[in-house]
Write a protein that binds this DNA or RNA. Sequence first.
DNA 1: TATACTGTAATAAAAAACATTACAGTTAAT
DNA 2: ATTAACTGTAATGTTTTTTATTACAGTATA
Lengths: 135, 135
Amino acid sequence: MNNVRFSTALHILTLHYYMKDEMLTSDFIAGSMNVNAAIVRKETSNLRKCGLVTTKEGKGGGTMLAKQAKDIRLSDVYNAVRQTSPLGKKNVPNPACPVGKQINTELDILYNKAEEAMVSKLAAVTLEAFCKPII
Amino acid sequence: MNNVRFSTALHILTLHYYMKDEMLTSDFIAGSMNVNAAIVRKETSNLRKCGLVTTKEGKGGGTMLAKQAKDIRLSDVYNAVRQTSPLGKKNVPNPACPVGKQINTELDILYNKAEEAMVSKLAAVTLEAFCKPII
DNA sequence: TATACTGTAATAAAAAACATTACAGTTAAT
DNA sequence: ATTAACTGTAATGTTTTTTATTACAGTATA
């Protein structure tokens, strides 16, 4: 997860909060963020699949928040972009090693607990609460 | 942090717990883990700088735990290998955008809180407790 | 002084992330 | 109907990050 997706998604959503109820195009968002419009479209497309925004194709189209900012939690954003554990990847151990054989099972459990702790912290913050100090 | 370093470091420490009080060479550890010995030496070297292991150069040398397994917390391991935030990188925003200008400050605060939540979960687990189900 | 180690730099290879281009499909306005 | 302005997404290229490998200087032991 050492990428910019969480930050990108949150930036997109924050812009929407700021531009209340306006339909935003990928070009507009991309300009604000200094990235290519195709990247924005990829992420809004993903956020739509996750129920956080609605999109409209064709002329006059764009993206809007699908719910009120107070009903979007940062854990929703995290889950929308999450790909790998925040603790990183596991090794592929030597199957002849007795320790290696079992360590990944324990790592799975540990990773889940640790991630859960982080996610519940994110769940305590709504998009609205996150945006307040910005606006 | 989408790498294998946390897993690697923990694997090394677990092997040491398993091989109680024996001095382990990088070749031995590397064999158990299916990785190159130079990678193990890089990580043990780092773990030494962080006070988790002691190393000995020259013939008959190798690595040992620097403290008892009950006194090593997984948060120590995390801090030893941590490089970037578990929520990923931030964007480089367009300085002309009022939202972009402030969002990274808020992200810093958020990232710190979220990471802290994860780290305190890791702090609750000692190397000994982690290893118990393995051994 | 030979042997068996660590430490680390340099480099190469592989994987992941990011950026760009292109264009099909959709909608609205004229 | 045609044009213009959008999204969606695939294909491709580039850059960055991560991992692996090689090599060898330095150190300790016998």
